[in-house]
Design a protein around this nucleic acid. Sequence first.
DNA 1: CCGAGAAGGTGGCATAGACCACTGGTGGCG
DNA 2: CGCCACCAGTGGTCTATGCCACCTTCTCGG
Lengths: 253, 253
Amino acid sequence: MASEAPRSALKRERVRDYLMELVESRAPGDPIPSERALCEQLGVSRPTLRSAVDELVTTGVLLREHGRGMFVARAKITQELAQDHDALRLPQASGTWTSRVLEFDTVQAGARVGRKLHLSPAADVVYIARLRLVDGEPMAIEYLHVPAALVPGLSPADMESGDFYDTLRDQHGVRVHEAVQSIEPTVTNEEEAELIGVPVLSPALLFERLTQDDTGRPVEYVHSVYRGDRYRIVSRLTLAHPTSAWRYTGPPG
Amino acid sequence: MASEAPRSALKRERVRDYLMELVESRAPGDPIPSERALCEQLGVSRPTLRSAVDELVTTGVLLREHGRGMFVARAKITQELAQDHDALRLPQASGTWTSRVLEFDTVQAGARVGRKLHLSPAADVVYIARLRLVDGEPMAIEYLHVPAALVPGLSPADMESGDFYDTLRDQHGVRVHEAVQSIEPTVTNEEEAELIGVPVLSPALLFERLTQDDTGRPVEYVHSVYRGDRYRIVSRLTLAHPTSAWRYTGPPG
DNA sequence: CCGAGAAGGTGGCATAGACCACTGGTGGCG
DNA sequence: CGCCACCAGTGGTCTATGCCACCTTCTCGG
């Protein structure tokens, strides 16, 4: 009854801060003590400690490896991007992009995809799931839907080598012209995490794109998830004349 | 030893799937049973149930309110964006943007910001933290650094009304011309979550922008965090000529 | 009639302990 | 000498339980 301390210091936060200091005193890739050892050092239970570790894994500070231990993550965490920006991440342009096709099927469009592509729900579409890699490292998972009538004879190999838009133009006479794309933040689910090689619930970018050819005909509907720890979007915007590109993120000033 | 079932069904996943069905059978805003009631229904312990709920709160399916209960979230979750796209979120253009200044100070640039703005670390910069709102709802938190010499007499009120770039041009003769911006996914920390009004570790977009005027002089360095459940970027891209804009996300095809 | 306080329900945090699944090293066996 | 089975250590999951903070509602007293 007496004083009732504000108790702003949750154990979980205390543990997290302790771990942050511990991480900063070590080099990337270094192991840190085991969960049970840390519990004893900090005087907290294992679920409490694991909860704090969960947060640091999600924010990209720590890595866990089952049966091996916990390690300081290699990449700088996103939250601290603003503190060490210049030496950050791989530039978009660099690296060699390759693809690995995971699924390749002709299926019925269904209601949702059919509406997107202006097709009947029963119309055939080619459904492709493919992994995008940069220098062999998984970077994104991409799900494409293309009207089957547009791409007769399309093979999985076509989706692994060269640019898809080049293939569309050269082999099918379809000239991609315009696209509407949305981007939003998300977190990885089990499947995406597994394929991209990041923990579940890691920050990621969700792209959705509907592409049209020069006659206004829908060509592809793409839905893709990019890992957030290795990928970012960099754009150069020009103002002066209030162009559409500049304003696209809402009010900048 | 006999058969050793694959046991792919973790309790946590079973609980999550059960909750997802439960959510889909209800309308947005509806309450769902209490944690303790769900535990009994599902035959799991409360920590296990809470763990599953945590995931659904992070992915935007459920809302928790301390002392009141749990509710079906209003916005469609990000993960399911692809399933109901047309009726999604608020369009970028709609809504009235306002700002609330949280901090407004003249401080020394420091090493990092000084490097960005091409200033000495000891040079004065105006540091502004402001909340951006759409129709009164918090949408983003924005941290600006502007060289103090550029904006003599700038007041907090200037940052709450009108467009900052208009203010720069009309009151200080600075004509914003070009910017380099990066976008990446992140999750909210305590401060951001508190200010924006979302749970900690919610998906969000991290913007970083360096703006120059028409003489190439750095004008502002901005770092902002947008909530992911209400905000997305929509852009229209045109191909045909391989312009820079189109390629900015890496290889599209 | 209305306001203040008590009671009960809810989510929030933390504990101690158990067992499972995976990894890597080590020692025994072929 | 080489291979493989075992085992100790690690993270992964789950249980049962307690107490706290917050909100709503009901009731009782003014």
